[in-house]
């Protein structure tokens, strides 16, 4: 399974970013190879409009099976993610990435 996180950093101890469209980083954890890879999304700060669609396009290219985030994507982003067939879990906006992963594993996150 490839799991994507919206985060404010690139390590297990980094805090999650509650936002989807304007998240600072997208981190991918590959459970099979036990590796982390990250995508720097901070350029999104310069976009006046359409942050949600731009970020979901990135996610589309990264092709995760699961997305763990905070408040959940807005309408437009949700439409794209539907195409991706990714399972979305929310409510992890206040955690670190590690805590979010553990909460996901013990089914403590709400599926959106």
């Amino acid at each position: 399974m490839k799991i994507a996180f919206t985060t404010k950093g690139t390590e297990w101890n980094s805090p999650m970013d509650a936002r989807f469209g304007r998240t600072e980083f997208i981190v991918i954890y590959d459970e099979e190879t036990n590796t982390l890879s990250s995508f720097d999304n901070r350029a999104i700060e310069n976009e006046a409009h359409g942050a949600g669609t731009a970020t979901s396009k990135k996610l589309f290219e990264l092709k995760p099976d699961v997305l763990i985030t905070g408040n959940g994507p807005g309408q437009n982003a949700a439409t794209v993610l539907k195409k991706l067939n990714v399972k979305i879990f929310g409510g992890a906006g206040e955690m670190t990435m590690k805590e979010a992963y553990e909460a996901y594993q013990s089914s403590d996150l709400a599926m959106l």
């Binding site: 970013d17 509650a18 936002r19 989807f20 304007r22 409009h49 905070g70 408040n71 807005g74 906006g93």
Partner: peptide
């Protein structure tokens, strides 16, 4: 859009 951005990330 602005109010959506105000809400995004709120507790």
């Amino acid at each position: 859009c602005p109010v959506q951005s105000s809400l995004s990330g709120a507790n």
